[in-house]
C-alpha cells in the first residue's frame, strides 16, 4: 500500500472506494490487454514451436534487407529499426498526451494525440511498404521464395507466420490509430472538458502502449533472432 496517496495505511477493501484505486474502465482495459497478450503470445509461441521443429529456417537478415529508395543495397535491420523507433517515439507522445490529460490541458492533449496519430500512420506506411516489397519478391501466405539458412529449400511456414503475426499487429496499430483519431475529435470538441476528466485518453493510451509492447516482441522474434 506504499503507493497510495494517503500516508496512513489505507484499508482499500473496507468499501466506499475502488480497492484497486483504478477506474472500472481502466481495470477492464488492463484485463483486456492481458488477454490480448496471451493471443499474441500464442501466435509467437506457435511460430517458435514450428521454428524449433525445423532443421533450418530462412535468415531474417537476408529477407529483410531492403530500404525504400535504396535500390538493391543490402541493409539488414535498417528499415525495421526505423519502424521500431517510430513506435517508441509515438509511445512517448502518448505518455505526454495522458499527462496533459491529468493536468486538464486540452490544447496539449490535442497536440500530443495528433503527433501520436502521425507516428501510427508512419508506422503503418512503413509496414505497407515492407509488405509490398516482400510481395514483389514473391512472398505471401502460401508462398516463400527465401531459402533456408543452410541452403535447403524452405517451407512456406516462414512467410505464413510472418504475414499473419505482423498483419495481426498491424491491425492493432490500425485500430489504435482509429481510436486515437476518435479521442482527438472528442478532446477537440471539449467532451472530456465537460466530463471533467480525461480517463478516456488514459485508456486509449494503455492500448497504444500495448501495441508498442507487442512490437518489441515481434521485432525480437522475426528480425533479431
Amino acid at each position: 500500500m506504499s503507493t497510495s496517496v494517503t500516508a496512513t495505511q489505507t484499508k482499500w477493501w473496507n468499501g466506499g472506494k475502488s480497492p484497486f484505486n483504478l477506474e472500472y474502465g481502466k481495470v477492464m482495459m488492463w484485463y483486456f490487454l492481458m488477454s490480448d497478450a496471451f493471443t499474441f503470445g500464442a501466435f509467437l509461441i506457435s511460430y517458435g514451436t514450428v521454428r524449433f521443429s525445423s532443421n533450418s529456417w530462412p535468415d531474417p537478415n537476408h529477407v529483410f534487407n531492403a530500404f525504400p529508395l535504396a535500390g538493391h543495397a543490402n541493409l539488414p535491420l535498417a528499415f525495421v529499426s526505423l519502424m521500431t523507433f517510430i513506435l517508441i517515439i509515438s509511445s512517448v507522445t502518448m505518455v505526454l498526451a495522458v499527462h496533459a490529460g491529468h493536468n486538464g490541458d486540452k490544447k496539449a492533449v490535442v497536440k500530443w494525440i495528433f503527433w501520436t496519430i502521425i507516428g501510427g500512420l508512419a508506422f503503418l506506411g512503413c509496414q505497407a511498404w515492407e509488405w509490398t516489397h516482400l510481395h514483389e519478391e514473391g512472398a505471401w501466405w502460401g508462398r516463400n521464395p527465401f531459402p533456408n539458412a543452410n541452403g535447403t529449400a524452405a517451407s512456406t511456414n516462414f512467410s505464413n507466420f510472418f504475414f499473419t503475426i505482423t498483419g495481426f499487429h498491424g491491425f492493432h496499430v490500425f485500430s489504435g490509430v482509429i481510436i486515437n483519431i476518435i479521442m482527438l475529435i472528442m478532446a477537440q470538441k471539449g467532451v472530456f472538458e465537460r466530463k471533467g476528466h480525461y480517463l478516456m485518453i488514459e485508456k486509449a493510451g494503455l492500448y497504444w502502449h500495448f501495441v508498442d509492447l507487442v512490437w518489441v516482441f515481434v521485432f525480437l522474434c522475426f528480425y533479431l533472432i
Partner: peptide
C-alpha cells in the same frame, strides 16, 4: 520499462 513507466503499472496498488 514500457509497462511500468509508460503504462504506469508500477505506480498502481500492489494487488492490482
Amino acid at each position: 520499462y514500457i509497462v511500468s513507466v509508460f503504462m504506469h503499472l508500477g505506480d498502481e496498488i500492489r494487488n492490482m
